[in-house]
Design a protein around this nucleic acid. Structure first.
Lengths: 227, 227
DNA sequence: CGCGATAAAATTGTGTACAATATGTATTTT
DNA sequence: AAAATACATATTGTACACAATTTTATCGCG
């Protein structure tokens, strides 16, 4: 397997929670698993570290970036601002090629929703928001967007693994919102794009709360205090 | 030289424009210069790439991130928002240890100003804003702050290389603003911290414009078109 | 002289061996 | 039995050799 593939593979494995947050990454086992030597693997790990997927402690190897409660608080604080700014820029910078890409991704997303495949939903959703970030074309904002999306996608696994009818309805709503957002980008309507984006955020935020505080809440007082 | 040192060395060389933006980085010459083999050097380059200091094109090596006019436009658009948000969080999360660090760095900055050492000013200024970012303690905002600071520090070389009295006065003002900002952080006054930060931004912005559009403007029409 | 193909040189990418460091275990000491 | 030490093992870090690729130089041809 080539290095670029390896990078993408590990990236997606992390995003899809195939590799648990916080878990240690053993170099030799990864090498055997992906059929590369340690030299390119380590280079990939260093890049992943630079982009926030992984944490490298000198002489102690790499581990997947963790998602603890304190960072979650920051997440909910920061996400709406970044998403809104990105949306604004994306609407200002919209071009037909990127809009077309967005439509393609959104088609995949809708198919995944109709087929009820949580993994594919999460993947398409990530790609969609990543592409919006590309369209915004802001080298200064996209680092934060990328960092947000890492944790957003990991958390959204819960969101898309819909169990009851209400949750499935929410996913349908999110799907419609995507279409509306793309329409707003295409129409180059920044303020509408921002509004729709914030609505979209609010919808997924309500569900992601459950990731941090799983439903039903544990009644164990010790656990509550720890949180 | 160890790998962590090498990382910092290259980082500062890029930030201080010792290595020109856009210039190619030859692996073997860097190895000889810093007395390491290519393996650790390449790992460092990959990490620098992940953090936005460097750009790696497969099979074509690494080059220092460039600063063209289009990215500059994004810079001025994005910077105030990120700086303000970071300032707010820094004021909310202020703790004595970090405040003390800030005071130390600011002391260095003032010394550099009084001694008239542009390089040291730029370094201290970078460290100061980086530490404010640490204090804000937001894993989602700091990637963008870091990316902004890369270009801000590189541009500020112009700012600190003061030639006339007016420019030196501006630097003095910036120095005072640093103190006021740290006071606001220490007092845990978010809104004041944000206001002061935006003032500080406005001051340096006015000077950095000159970097993008050097004074006096070239009247050559070909150059204008190319830009 | 310009253009394209081909060969040589230089540069980047990968595999492997070995060194340095950290971790785990057994033994000794109190 | 607990703590400390020394040793063995496992893991990470680095150097180097070679493979793959790109860049440069050379040559032939119209």
């Amino acid at each position: 397997m080539k290095k670029t593939e390896l990078f993408d593979t590990l990236r997606w494995q992390i995003l899809q929670l195939d590799i648990e947050p916080g878990s240690a990454l053993d170099e030799v086992s990864l090498c055997e698993a992906h059929n590369v030597s340690r030299t390119p693997l380590r280079e990939v790990l260093h890049r992943l570290a630079g982009e926030g997927f992984v944490r490298i402690e000198p002489n102690r190897g790499a581990s997947v970036s963790s998602m603890d409660i304190t960072t979650m608080r920051n997440f909910f604080q920061t996400a709406p601002m970044i998403y809104a700014s990105i949306a604004r820029l994306a609407a200002e910078n919209a071009n037909p090629a990127k809009i077309s890409t967005l439509r393609d991704i959104q088609r995949d997303f809708r198919l995944a929703v109709e087929a009820g495949h949580p993994r594919d939903m999460a993947i398409s959703n990530h790609k969609l928001h990543e592409t919006i970030g590309d369209m915004a074309d802001s080298p200064y904002l996209s680092p934060s967007l990328q960092r947000l999306l890492i944790d957003h996608t990991r958390m959204s696994q819960t969101f898309y693994a819909a169990r009851n009818k209400d949750e499935r309805t929410r996913i349908m709503t999110a799907c419609e919102q995507h279409d509306d957002m793309i329409d707003a980008f295409e129409a180059r309507d920044p303020s509408r794009a921002v509004t729709l984006t914030l609505d979209h955020w609010a919808l997924s935020r309500d569900r992601m709360d459950l990731y941090v505080r799983p439903d039903p809440l544990p009644v164990n007082p010790e656990v509550r205090d720890a949180v």
